[in-house]
Simulated assay, not measured.
Amino acid sequence: MPFAAITYDIKPGFEAELTEIFGNFRRVRSDKVRTETGEEAGRILATAVFLRDDTMVRVIEYQGDLDAVARHMASQPGVREVEASLKPYLSRPRDTDTVEGFVATFRRSLLNTVAQISVRDAPPAA
């Protein structure tokens, strides 16, 4: 299962506030990711957020099409609330008020995958 990681450029010194924002996160309505026509395009399996100094990283484990995952996230009330709550703490603004802006920001913030290893990818033990 692939992982994606997106970065946020933040103002340092707000660790408690950022932790509270994500601590109050409302989960997405469903882990199933659907296209605009309702077809299943993937699933969001897990997310995690990491923070140090002026960098925050959100890691997403998913199945399916990453673009569809980004579009799905853009429409979720909890994600929209977090993005709005983060605005005062960002050192570089993010255009996430619309689905198109969120997806474009997601793509720009995406880290390149260098390596990804999981026991789920290993062949069964003999």
Results as ranks from 00 to 15, higher is better:
V119W: 08
F22N: 12
R71T: 05
P88Q: 00
T47R: 10
A125M: 05
T19E: 12
I60C: 02
V57L: 02
E15G: 03
R27N: 15
A41F: 11
D121K: 03
L18T: 10
L90A: 10
L45C: 14
G42N: 04
V28P: 00
T37F: 07
I117S: 08
R80K: 05
G13Q: 09
S118M: 09
S85Q: 12
P12S: 11
Y62N: 09
E40V: 15
R34I: 11
I44Y: 09
A4N: 08
I44K: 08
Y8W: 09
D65R: 06
P2A: 08
L86P: 03
V82F: 03
A104Q: 10
R26F: 14
V33K: 10
F22V: 15
F14R: 08
E61T: 08
T55K: 07
A48E: 07
F102M: 04
R120P: 01
T7V: 15
R80G: 13
E61W: 01
Q63D: 06
P123K: 15
G78P: 15
V99K: 14
R71H: 02
R80M: 15
I6E: 04
M56T: 02
V69F: 03
A41M: 07
M56P: 06
F3Y: 03
S118I: 08
G13W: 08
L111F: 12
A70Q: 02
G38D: 03
S30W: 00
E83W: 03
G64F: 00
E36Y: 13
K32A: 14
V79L: 06
E81S: 13
L111H: 08
F25S: 13
L111T: 05
R58N: 02
L66I: 14
R58W: 03
V99R: 12
A48K: 04
V103D: 04
L66C: 05
R27M: 13
N112V: 12
T19I: 14
D9E: 12
P77H: 01
K32I: 14
M73I: 10
R27L: 11
G13T: 05
S75Y: 01
V57W: 00
R107Q: 11
L111P: 00
F102W: 05
T37L: 14
M1K: 02
T35V: 10
F50H: 10
V33I: 12
L66R: 04
Q63M: 06
A48T: 13
Y89R: 01
G64C: 06
D53H: 04
V57I: 07
I21V: 15
T35R: 13
